[in-house]
Every structure is written in C-alpha cells, then in structure tokens.
Amino acid sequence: MQAAIEIDGLTKDYYLGFWRKRPRRALDGLTLTIEEGEVFGFLGPNGAGKTTTLKLLMGLIFPTSGGARILGRAIEDVSMHHDVGYLPEQPYFYDYLTARELLDYFARFFRLSAEERRRRIGSVLDLVGLSSAADVQLRRYSKGMLQRIGMAQAILHQPRVVFLDEPMSGLDPVGRREARDIILDLKRQGRTVFFSTHILPDAEMLCDRVAVLVGGKLQGVGSPEQIVSIEVESLEVLFELPAGSALPPALEDAATQTGARYRIQVPEAQLYDALEGLRAARARIISVSQLKPTLEDFFLRLVGGEQRKHAVEISGGGL
C-alpha cells in the first residue's frame, strides 16, 4: 500500500527585512511518512512551523528545498486536490455568501451532480451543526461558526486525506467534542487525517501517531504512548498548613502556594519522605494523586528552559 503523505526534506526560509533580505528558517528538512488511514497529530509550540508545513503541502507557499507527495502525486500537481481537504488556520470566507452558497461554490470544483451537491451540503452542514445558520451570510458568523464551516468545506467532497490546521481552536466544549467525533468518523471511514494542534489531550485521544516539531525541526515521531513512556511517573500532593506552622525546609523549593493550599509534585520514590515531612509540620493532606504522564511533560522537556514560558501557555490550552 502506498503512503498517504510522504514529506521529504521539506525546508522553508522566509525572507525578512525590506532592503537587505535575511533568510529565517521556519521549517528545516522535515521528513515524515504517514500511512493511509492514520490519524496523525502534528504538535509543537507557537511558531514551530506547523502552519508553514501545511501551507507548503497545499501549495500556498513554495519550499526553499525538498518536496512532498500526497497519495503518490507530487504536491505541485493540482489534480491531487481532488482527494484532499484542507481547513486553514483561522479560516475566513467570502462575506457576501451564505454557508450553503459557499459550500455549493466549493463543491462545483468537483464532478458532482446538482442533486449530489445538495445532498452532501445538507448532510455536512448537519454534521458541523450549522443547519440552522445555513442561509445566513458569512459576514455575520462568529469565530467558532467560521471554524465549523471551515471543517465542513474540508470534508465536503469526501477526500481521502484531510489536513486540519488547529481544528479545535475557537470552538466551545461542545464544538470540540463534535470536531473530535468528526475526526474519529473520518478514521472509521478509512480516511487519513493530518492535524496540527496545541491541545495535547486531543492528540492523545485521537492520534495513532504524533510528531513533535520545535523551532522548525522534527523532535520525534511515535505513538502517543511510546512518547509518554519516556517520562518518569510522578505524584502530586495537595495540602494545607495550620496557622503558625511553616513548610518543612526540604519542600520549600518544590511547593507552589494557591491561597491557603500548597501543591508539590514528587517522584514516586520520594513520596514517603515528603509525606513524613508534611506530617511533622502538621499539614492537612487534601489529596495525593498519580500524575498520568502526558505528552505535555514530554513537550516541556523538549522545549527546555528557554521556551518554558511558551510551553506553560500551551499546557493551559487543555480542556
């Protein structure tokens, strides 16, 4: 079976500055192969090069070097788009069209009968929950509604490979669940889904495999569990201190305080020592929970000291 997406040494330099153009490498020799039927998560902090990769694959910008093939056809070959769907980042569509008209416009680029078009548009509008707003002009759409119509146009022609750039962004909790359902549905139908995201639980839940991109460079590829198992498991202890008593000196550095509550995170091996210290300080233990190691930890480790600030913001994006 041929691979759905083969990316080979894809590199993109942006040129900055007006007079003296300085190149800035946004994507550096990305090589990846994604099999048909896979749901593939493309992870990375802001500015990692995710959108750049997707725009390159869609032919919206051109690579400095390297190339890619989708379903065996080079990305320069427009016929490849018959079998490909794309949801851009923060999608925006024609103000003057209604959702139904937009989908009809886009559907006309495929060999579909009028009857078939109408049927598909109806069902896809239903799927993304826009049936009631189908005849409203897009200028009156909210951000989340635009995201939904963007999803609708990406899957309208039943493509074999779907590219989604941050499909959950701007969606409310219900919308996120619906989007997840759509992706799982696509997977059930045997389609390939390649999506970028910051939201790690989504990636863990949906993806067969994930790739992590930082600063334009690929950091690792594997199943979510594979990547997670790198991490040492740890535990979180929540507690309160009675008035007048102080934190045991050993825990002073590790603890973070929120109101009256303290939180420490310790490796499994040191748990009893920590509890011992807390008991001596007459702390009231509220909970001890096992931290399921997540991609997030992997992420934090990869990003390292300098980019820690970024990474923390990213972790805040979780549901």
Binding site: L60, V78, H81, Y86, P88, Y94, F109, G150, A154
Partner: peptide, 14 residues
C-alpha cells in the same frame, strides 16, 4: 489579504 484564497486553492484549481 482576507485569506479567502486558502480554501479556494485547496480545490483542484490552478
């Protein structure tokens, strides 16, 4: 400018 072209050029359209 409005990025309406992104989705359009994802059709099989040169």
């Amino acid at each position: 400018d409005k990025r309406t072209l992104y989705a359009l050029l994802a059709r099989p359209l040169r």
